[in-house]
């Protein structure tokens, strides 16, 4: 176990934009900037002493009102060394974007689509970045903190228009 940790620290030290952070429950955790994240993940996967080949999940966190606003979280696992780790990549601005890892881990495809669907974070180089859980044509990104939890949003099923009347469907008169 400890040898994997040492190797991890040595590898992380070789990347300028990567720094180790403390984790609540003691797993190795890193924060990487966008420029070095892809190279770092590639190295974690291919390094002989690490072999983090299993991508458990990709998700994002919205730190609303903070900048950078979003953090994309990757959780990798080395089946050989029985070790997990977490890499966070902060991103923000008007159009948050990080690089895709679908070429490294084919399983990232749907997870990145889900992050795009729910948070509106783009993945540069993704083969098919479309909505997955919501439908095409849906507006807004539901898991952002500024998306209302409750409410009566036009365009969603069950939307009730003014005066408690069901909204007009396309092609119907909105009387």
């Amino acid at each position: 176990m400890s040898t994997v940790r040492e190797r991890l620290d040595a590898v992380a030290a070789g990347f300028e934009g990567v720094r180790a952070v403390d984790d609540l429950r003691g797993d190795p955790a890193f924060v990487a900037d966008r420029a070095s994240a892809k190279a770092f993940l590639t190295r974690l996967r291919d390094d002989e002493g690490l072999r983090f080949t299993f991508l458990s999940f990709v998700t994002a966190v919205d730190n609303y009102l903070d900048e950078p606003r979003f953090e994309v979280t990757y959780r990798l696992r080395s089946l050989e060394h029985n070790q997990d780790l977490r890499v966070n990549v902060p991103t923000g601005g008007e159009e948050p974007e990080v690089d895709t890892v679908t070429d490294l881990f084919p399983g990232a495809n749907w997870m990145e689509r889900e992050v795009w669907d729910m948070f509106g974070i783009r993945f540069a180089g993704h083969p098919n970045l479309t909505r997955i859980l919501m439908w095409e044509g849906f507006e807004g990104f539901p898991l952002r903190k500024d998306y209302p939890l409750l409410g009566n949003t036009p365009g969603t099923p069950g939307y009730v228009g003014k005066g408690g009347k069901p909204a007009a469907r396309p092609g119907e008169d909105a009387s």
Partner: peptide, 14 residues
């Protein structure tokens, strides 16, 4: 603040 469910069926279906 955020909870993510790593659902096996979602990943396996890919």
């Amino acid at each position: 603040d955020r909870m993510y469910i790593r659902a096996p069926s979602f990943v396996n279906l890919q």
